[in-house]
């Protein structure tokens, strides 16, 4: 395999044949397409097999807690909105443990790119059902099958007004690379839910299973600016999996909503003792107004 400037010498811990390898490769391809340097990138992740990804890439990295990557990334982006931030998360990490942050990130329209490695199973904890496991899926810990309906991330994101929603498949790296490029280029919150097989624990949603269901929205002439059509796609009852850009529409990113960030990132302000003294002076003597 061709070496890239994003490769690093660190032993990869994923199972051989894991869909994560293709996601990692697609990311590198996308970064190269975008002419990015490792120094330009901050990868933020939580816990799970997907959360390990930044360890296998030349980049700046903040590897945090289970489910909390979006909150960490939001903080980092508010501090410095000039940084390119990409969050690698999984179906358990993002839609389960971190569900609240997923909702909030969409509402904030924080300008980061979320890549959810969705294998419809918990890999790192050895095969429990995930929020996206189909109803009735049997696992070691759900021995009579799951009893909750599957979470539909795309429908949820659409309902909340997300401005860039993509559906990828690890088996189509060319498309995934393109999706990642488009997502990074989108000013605002962009998410790509990426179906991937889990070769160790998910014996149902295998590579072949996905392969026989996915189709490229480009081929079907989908108009991704049409919200109603996007909604129809996610409530697709014929068990086909549409991939590509599901929905895209412009919005004002979080940092552009704040006057203080209009001219420069928060981190670049220098400490202004004079202004502070003035402010503290006012603060000290606004008599009795202390409630």
């Amino acid at each position: 395999m061709e070496k890239t400037k994003f490769d690093i010498d660190n032993e990869n811990q994923w199972c051989p044949g894991c869909g994560n390898f293709s996601i990692l490769k697609s990311m590198k391809n996308a970064f190269i397409t975008l002419d990015l340097e490792p120094r330009d990138l901050l990868l933020v992740s939580g816990i799970g097999q997907a959360g390990k990804l930044p360890n296998y890439l030349a980049c700046n990295m903040l590897h945090g807690l289970h489910g909390r990557a979006l909150a960490l990334a939001t903080g980092a982006k508010i501090a410095n909105h000039n940084i390119n931030i990409i969050v690698n998360s999984g179906d358990g990490d993002c839609y389960g443990e971190g569900g609240n942050h997923f909702l909030a990130a969409i509402r904030r329209n924080i300008d980061i790119t979320l890549l959810v490695h969705n294998n419809q199973i918990y890999g790192l904890t050895k095969g429990q059902a995930s929020p996206t496991s189909a109803l009735g899926m049997k696992t070691k810990n759900q021995n009579h099958g799951t009893i909750s309906n599957a979470f539909n991330p795309i429908a949820t994101a659409l309902a909340l007004g997300a401005g860039f929603i993509g559906q990828g498949f690890s088996g189509n790296m060319q498309q995934l690379t393109h999706l990642i490029v488009e997502a990074i280029n989108y000013p605002g919150f962009s998410m790509i839910d990426i179906y991937q097989p889990c070769v160790s624990f998910n014996k149902i949603n295998t590579h072949a299973w996905y392969k026989s269901r996915v189709f490229d929205l480009k081929d079907s002439g989908h108009d991704y600016s049409d919200f109603k059509k996007a909604l129809q796609l996610v409530h697709n009852k014929n068990h086909q999996i549409p991939t590509g850009i599901i929905y895209k529409s412009p919005g004002i990113p979080f940092h552009e909503r704040l006057d203080v960030l209009k001219n420069q990132p928060l981190v670049e302000y220098s400490f202004n003792a004079a202004q502070l003294e003035k402010t503290l002076g006012i603060a000290q003597f606004d008599k009795g107004d202390n409630q």
């Binding site: 903040l62 945090g64 939001t74 508010i78």
Partner: peptide, 8 residues
């Protein structure tokens, strides 16, 4: 923590 990591 995220913002602090990024220098704020």
């Amino acid at each position: 923590v995220g913002a602090s990591f990024a220098g704020v």
